[in-house]
């Protein structure tokens, strides 16, 4: 078992009313799964992804990640946990504009105590694997959306996480770029055994996954 959510509730108080963002979510994820979270806008997809990614807290329930109970961990431990096991991919790529492709890839490693030579090797390996060696000295603004997202995925993968969380990874891409990224995810999942949880609007993209989780108004349906 990679992770397990038990009876997760998350809410905000607004005008004396409690508005639920997540309502009684239960979810078990095994290693090697490829899950797509679907649902209309405001249904809590991204919130759920953020909770799984430990970027956001929750108000009630239990969250176990690799047998650690996340809800009882201190902030610093939690950070260490996701630093080690989780990689993020965003809809709008979120690359650092001031860094080149190569440097963007190296950036997460800086926070993980790798030596310089090791970092170089890992970055080179990743550039190679994603066929972007030729782009390594370009800045994000010089790349197409699809290429930027490729870098985004590479960055998420560089420290070999067990879990990739992708929030509408193809939302800003055209259909061909979209397909390329999804193929990549599929390959990572099947060949490298990386667990993937993605948020998506598109049935076509969801079909790449092994399981679909549907949300409506913060509730699993």
């Amino acid at each position: 078992m990679l992770l397990e959510l038990n009876n997760i509730f998350k809410w905000v108080n607004s005008g004396g009313q409690r508005i639920f963002l997540l309502k009684d979510i239960n979810l078990q994820v095994e290693e090697g799964e490829f899950i797509s979270i679907m649902g209309p806008s405001g249904s809590g997809k991204s919130t759920l992804l953020n909770v799984i990614g430990m970027l956001d807290g929750f108000d009630e329930g239990e969250y176990n990640f690799l047998d650690e109970s996340v809800h009882t961990l201190k902030e610093k431990h939690r950070a260490n946990l996701y630093k080690e096991y989780i990689g993020f991919v965003f809809q709008s790529y979120h690359l650092l504009d001031e860094l080149t492709v190569q440097e963007n890839l190296e950036m997460p490693l800086l926070y993980k105590k790798y030596k310089g030579a090791e970092r170089k090797a890992m970055v080179a390996d990743m550039l190679d694997r994603f066929n972007i060696v030729g782009k390594k000295d370009l800045f994000p603004a010089q790349l197409s959306g699809g290429q930027q997202q490729l870098v985004g995925v590479a960055r998420a993968l560089i420290a070999s996480p067990k879990l990739i969380l992708a929030d509408e990874p193809t939302g800003n891409l055209n259909s061909q770029q979209s397909a390329e990224i999804m193929e990549l995810f599929k390959k990572l999942n099947q060949e490298d055994g990386v667990t993937i949880i993605q948020v998506t609007h598109s049935e076509k993209n969801a079909a790449y996954g092994s399981r679909i989780l549907k949300l409506l108004d913060g509730r699993k349906v």
Partner: peptide, 16 residues
């Protein structure tokens, strides 16, 4: 802020 967010998500600690 976005940059700081990306860095945090990539594992940067507050002190860093």
């Amino acid at each position: 802020a976005k940059e700081a967010g990306i860095r945090k998500v990539s594992g940067a600690q507050k002190s860093q």
